[in-house]
Amino acid sequence: MVHGRRSRSFYALSILFGAFVLFLYGPMVTVILLAFQGPDGGLTFPMNGASLHWFADIFQPQSIGDIWGSFDRSIKLGMMVMLATVVVSFLTGLAYRKKFRGSSVLFYVVIASLIMPSIVVSLGIGSMFELLGIERSWWSSAFGAHLTWTLPFGLLIMFAVFNRFDPAYEEAARDLGASGWQTIRHVVLPIVAPSLIGVALFGFTLSYDEIARTSQSVGALNTLPMELQAMQTNVTTPVIYALGAYTTALSLVVIGVSLVLVLAFRWRQKRFGSDADKGMV
């Protein structure tokens, strides 16, 4: 099974895997293709010519939806959530390396947030702000709502990272006289940096894409996915596909940048990380 000739199940499963990938990419490819519709093209195939018309049209004032306002808010919110998710997940990851009272309760609360139906969280935050008489907005109530979604992922990643983290590095730093802060800054942080980029990627994309927890917590001004969801029933032109192509491209750029950063960190670690085998300097 592990070596030798490929079995029949290999070929069957290869076909299944290929079909699954086709199924995953089909809608995305369709959207991108249709974004290139000619100026007279409709929402479905066939293509009525090919043009960049809709990619430009999106920058014109639109009759429905506040695309650019909501895009702007989504990016800002995504950045805020990303930053908060990285910092808070890292700190909590550090806390869980020691024993502290309430750690298991806190852990269960975080996991509960992960599997809690999002509409319930959304409703709760909405009601809380309503009862307290505080106006809901994307940077307050929706920011909190997003964190209840991104932090469980961030924390689980940090657990996975610190489970594989050798405490000998910190002990060595402490033996050499480093303070707690110095150990974190110069030893722990550089080692876990690539994983923190992963946490950042999760934080941003989960927030940038969030609808369910945003719905009751966002207040008067929508985020992009909320605006899109509201628009999709009224839109009659391929402009929505152009928007889809743009946001897909943005997501791919974000992944690309993260990957490059991770590779850069790895390279730096290889280059400068250890002189253990180089003898006396």
Binding site: M28, Y208, D209, I211, L228, L243, G244
Partner: peptide, 9 residues
């Protein structure tokens, strides 16, 4: 990529 876009697709 955006959930809404993936569904509209």
């Amino acid at each position: 990529t955006s959930i809404v876009i993936r569904m509209i697709a």
